[in-house]
């Protein structure tokens, strides 16, 4: 461990498309999945991450390095997360949330989920369908039945679909 040897321990992560990445152990253990491997002593060689591609893993590692460089200050961490996610398109966010889920990184998962929810907030059903390309495969009768069953969700609701 870093504290014993005086030099930071580095881990090697391998994406599912065989890209290799070096990352400081202190940053990588933000992932509970990786931390468990380290604690169980299975992080000696290369750690294969079968559910994450190279492009996403590179992004996640940028996040790991960035956030672990910030001292324990929740506000600064939050503003780093906001900035980190601000320019990501939905494709990337979807990849990130899946990776965060697989790597068990609750802080990143929370941030990405919140970001996706933010897009849906105060928007009409039609707007959300268009924005995310959701295919509506209800028949008109089925849709009317679901709307009737969930009538309460439309009461007192104002949507803001302009932006």
């Amino acid at each position: 461990m870093a504290a014993e040897t005086g030099t930071p321990t580095t881990l090697t992560l391998k994406s599912n498309d065989d890209e290799l990445f070096s990352v400081a152990e202190s940053a990588a253990i933000l992932s509970v999945t990786i931390r468990n491997m380290v604690e169980d002593g299975c992080a000696g060689g290369v750690i294969p991450l079968d559910n994450v591609d190279g492009k996403t893993l590179a992004s996640v590692i940028t996040y790991m390095n960035g956030i672990s460089a910030i001292p324990a200050d929740e506000e600064k961490k939050k503003s780093y997360r906001d900035k980190f996610l601000s320019d990501k398109d939905f494709e990337t966010l979807a990849d990130m949330v899946l990776a965060a889920n697989y790597l068990n990184m609750s802080c990143l998962m929370d941030a990405v989920s919140a970001k996706i929810a933010q897009v849906m907030e105060k928007k009409s059903v039609g707007w959300v369908r268009r924005k995310f390309g959701i295919e509506n495969d209800y028949t008109p009768e089925e849709e009317a039945a679901v709307k009737e069953e969930h009538k309460w969700t439309f009461e007192g609701v104002e949507t803001d679909d302009d932006n």
């Binding site: 509506n136 709307k147 969930h150 439309f154 609701v157």
Partner: peptide, 9 residues
């Protein structure tokens, strides 16, 4: 209410 409305998507 917003969560429930996603049922219509």
């Amino acid at each position: 209410k917003e969560a429930g409305r996603t049922s219509v998507l």
